[in-house]
Simulated assay, not measured.
Amino acid sequence: MSRERDRVLAAADVSRETAEKLDLYVAQLTRWQAIKNLVGPSTLAEVWTRHVADALQLLTLMPAARTWLDLGSGAGIPGLILAIAGPPGIRVDLVESNARKCAFLTETARLTGAPVRVHNARIEAVIGDHRGVDVVCARALASLTQLLAWAEPLLKTGTTGLFPKGREVEAELTEAAARWTVGHDLLPSRTESSARIVRVTALAPNRP
């Protein structure tokens, strides 16, 4: 794992201080995994490549973004990792309805000094309070159609969406096109050859 760690951190070109905070995040994730199933158990051994690197690549897609909203944050992937490694002035709001996962997010943010706000709430209850954020993101949460429905108030007013997706991304885009006109580009993932990141730049419901 140390070899994977070094490779990921070198590719991300993070400072020693940020590397130490990411180490602390991974240690916390490993400890809390025994209490609350935060990530797939089989992926924990590959935490640096499967989770940390997967989150860090989003920063390179929106380098000027400073305000982020992470839906269904769970283990803080990508939102908490973005806050730990992001540029000066970054602020990330984490939305998670599970109270025990929120406890993990809150404690790990405290230990790492990550600039986040944790919202123990359902997405529908808080999405309207975040108009004007630069980026809304979500990973391994729901279908693209559902993500667009949740994020519509933001995406139709200038917020960019970043949604990592797996090999079924084309099918998800086709399904979403039945309901939405989606301005987007499809970007390759740096961590999985069959995965893509859907970057949404405009959204409008289709006319009936």
Rank of each mutant, 00 (worst) to 15 (best):
68 W>R: 03
102 C>L: 04
116 V>A: 01
62 M>Y: 02
84 I>V: 07
93 D>Y: 00
106 T>L: 03
40 G>H: 12
64 A>N: 15
14 V>T: 10
101 K>W: 06
99 A>S: 15
80 L>H: 04
99 A>V: 12
27 A>R: 14
45 A>Y: 07
100 R>P: 00
21 K>W: 06
117 R>N: 09
29 L>H: 04
42 S>Q: 14
7 R>H: 10
55 A>P: 01
113 G>V: 12
42 S>C: 12
68 W>K: 03
56 L>W: 13
96 E>K: 02
22 L>V: 15
10 A>Y: 09
74 G>V: 11
68 W>H: 03
113 G>L: 10
93 D>S: 09
107 E>R: 11
70 D>P: 01
58 L>N: 02
71 L>G: 01
71 L>M: 14
9 L>R: 06
110 R>S: 12
79 G>D: 05
12 A>H: 09
94 L>K: 00
16 R>P: 02
109 A>R: 00
25 Y>G: 02
26 V>T: 11
28 Q>M: 12
92 V>L: 04
108 T>C: 05
39 V>L: 13
58 L>H: 03
52 V>T: 06
94 L>A: 01
70 D>N: 09
90 I>G: 03
25 Y>H: 05
91 R>P: 00
41 P>F: 13
113 G>W: 09
11 A>K: 12
104 F>Q: 01
103 A>K: 01
9 L>Y: 09
69 L>A: 05
80 L>F: 07
119 H>V: 02
120 N>L: 02
111 L>E: 14
66 R>C: 10
66 R>W: 13
99 A>P: 01
83 A>T: 04
37 N>T: 14
9 L>N: 07
60 T>G: 05
105 L>S: 02
83 A>G: 01
20 E>C: 11
70 D>S: 10
90 I>N: 07
39 V>E: 08
53 A>N: 02
46 E>D: 13
57 Q>W: 05
50 R>I: 09
